[in-house]
Design a binder for these strands. Structure first.
Lengths: 349, 349
DNA sequence: AGTTTTATCCAACATGTTTAATTTATCAGA
DNA sequence: TCTGATAAATTAAACATGTTGGATAAAACT
């Protein structure tokens, strides 16, 4: 057994409660006693038992993180470590620890969250994704357990505290950029439609086209969370249309890397033959060949703001519901070029 | 206050201790009583309080993960999410939760570990890195706190349970592969020498050259954890030697991507002008241009084995110290080609 | 001496687990 | 069928380690 406050109390010749108050720096204890107790703590090398503390306080100072299931590409995506770093920084500032959900299937994850919540293992939860239909989110709302979402909730937006970019606007702007370069046939390659980001980005994309009076073309829109397999096929298909797109908006850098790779294999050069614009601006976007023009969504900040918001929620009984929008920024590199020449000539098909 | 075993006990008309035993499925309780108690638990929607349990059991079923400090490239590297997935799977199998150290500086991290350990927040710890000199590791050893290292410890290898690849051998084999392709001038670009992996890989590299009777050339060896900045310079320097290398062993895919990028900018083509071989085989190694020949070290497995080993350590009082070597495999893609032609002709310099 | 103020302590509580004690049931033998 | 011995089931109480409201004692002030 380790050293407890009783041991300290005995050595300092005071009651355990006094020791507890010294730790909390309670003003009811005289400075003299505080000194005495502190000396005893040092002598014994005392460290408070966090578990006992949590039990007494009904608070663990742990934040639970819920990730989408691990089979998901999400996990491979550099988005994850970056957002985690932000979360970590935010938590660290206020001495919170992070616990992550383990669990492969959605059911296991849900079970894990229930354990965290009902087992009082965590004080609050951060969802690292937002889906159209999510058991976990519903559960947390039902139980009125404090939580924050990274990403825009699908419904009841005004009742949930969340941190997100304005993906709709970002996508619209990105598309406008391509339009401004003279592109008129623009394709969209998106990920899983169950994620709200995907939806937002596609809506922004469509809106931009509509505003430019370009009728949207369903054939130009591809959904798949491919990276390699299938992607190749999807792209050939896209490029074999009578009127192939001259530019692509890709919902994620990793995916864009896959696209780039496929195009290279097909001997189609970027940006000469086709322009590519993607999202997230993860580390390797600038290391790709050619470096990707990408919308920086400040992933770190998403995480950082999320933990801060949750902590605020936890420390303030009647903290209002908040929406935090992290600014984005188009980083122009070389994967997009202007399309001034005739499309037919320009495209190898 | 939530529902406790007392509430359940009252409803089922038994003692709290009986309820506790029902939860633990203790054979001392009759089936009849078990049924009765379970019914009461269901009726009340009882969920045991994990914190109270931890206190009583002196065990939290939480594993602490220690990452190198977040300013480190490590965090950006896809290595991290992958190893985490492995860790998560291993932990999940046995119902362990994962808690990660937050903390930006090395000191903060150390403090965090002390909190975890002395505060009894975790049952054991996994170090996700191995450095030549590490305060955390020394601390854990001193306190005899259960832990496992991912990577080979720098000293007292036989007293520490660890999971690693045989990086020495892997690097030697990789270098031999380049030798077998006819390369004689081979450079090495490595990362931070404080990490043991780097050391192992460079030793393997040198050994292979020695065995091939090629005297090693210090000018061919570069260390920096660059990705972009500085890297360019380092590479130009390397290629401006009188006898520039015709092949490079790069200690990490992400770094290799940086190298690739720099080379592309310098209009040096891979593998025609120079071959590149790297380590880790992370997701995007095959998405790069050209796809990288890389040593697959089975990152997932490293994590998976690490959590399993730690759990074994925790459940078995006198579990022996173990060394677990995860096999590696050279994945040949297209970034290496054979060097049959004369070097001077082949190289643009 | 009586009243405040200040410092410290006691005991209850947060929620389970577990040892040892007690109660209840079962069976052999009279 | 009843007694006592034994086994089985259940309970009470102690414990794991802190926190905190109210009680108490000591000191300080009228």
């Amino acid at each position: 057994m380790a050293i407890t406050i009783k041991d300290v109390a005995k050595l300092a010749d005071v009651a355990p409660s006094t020791v507890s108050r010294v730790i909390a720096n309670n003003p009811r204890i005289s400075d003299k006693t505080k000194e005495k107790v502190k000396a005893a703590m040092d002598e014994l090398g005392y460290h408070p038992n966090f578990i006992a503390r949590s039990l007494a306080n009904q608070s663990t100072r742990v934040i639970g993180l819920v990730l989408p299931n691990s089979t998901d590409v999400f996990f491979q995506n550099p988005f994850f470590p970056t957002v985690l770093r932000g979360l970590s920084d935010g938590a660290n500032e206020r001495q919170y620890a992070l616990q992550i959900s383990t669990g492969k299937t959605d059911d296991e994850i849900f079970e894990g969250v229930v354990q965290m919540v009902q087992g009082r293992r965590v004080d609050g939860v951060i969802l690292l994704y937002s889906r159209t239909e999510d058991k976990v989110l519903n559960y947390l709302r039902e139980r009125k357990f404090p939580f924050v979402v990274i990403g825009k909730p699908f419904k009841d937006v005004d009742q949930i505290t969340y941190v997100d970019n304005d993906n709709y606007k970002a996508s619209k702007e990105a598309t406008n950029y391509l339009l401004s370069l003279g592109h008129k046939q623009i394709g969209f390659i998106g990920g899983d439609l169950n994620f709200v980001v995907t939806i937002e980005r596609i809506l922004g994309f469509e809106k931009a086209l509509r505003e430019a009076n370009i009728e949207s073309n369903d054939e130009y829109i591809i959904h798949s969370e491919f990276l390699r397999e299938g992607g190749q096929e999807a792209i050939s298909q896209l490029l074999n249309l009578k009127n192939p797109p001259t530019a692509l908006v890709v919902a994620d850098d990793l995916m864009a890397l896959g696209v780039l790779n496929t195009l290279t294999e097909m001997k189609i050069s970027v940006p000469e033959d086709i322009s590519i614009l993607s999202f997230n601006n993860v580390l390797f976007s600038e290391l790709s060949n050619p470096p990707l023009t990408s919308v920086d969504i400040n992933i770190f900040e998403l995480g950082y703001q999320a933990s801060r918001s949750l902590i605020r929620l936890l420390s303030n009984e009647n903290e209002p519901v908040r929406r935090i929008i992290v600014p984005h920024k188009l980083i122009k590199r070389v994967s997009c070029s202007s399309r001034i020449i005739d499309i037919k000539t320009a495209h190898p098909n």
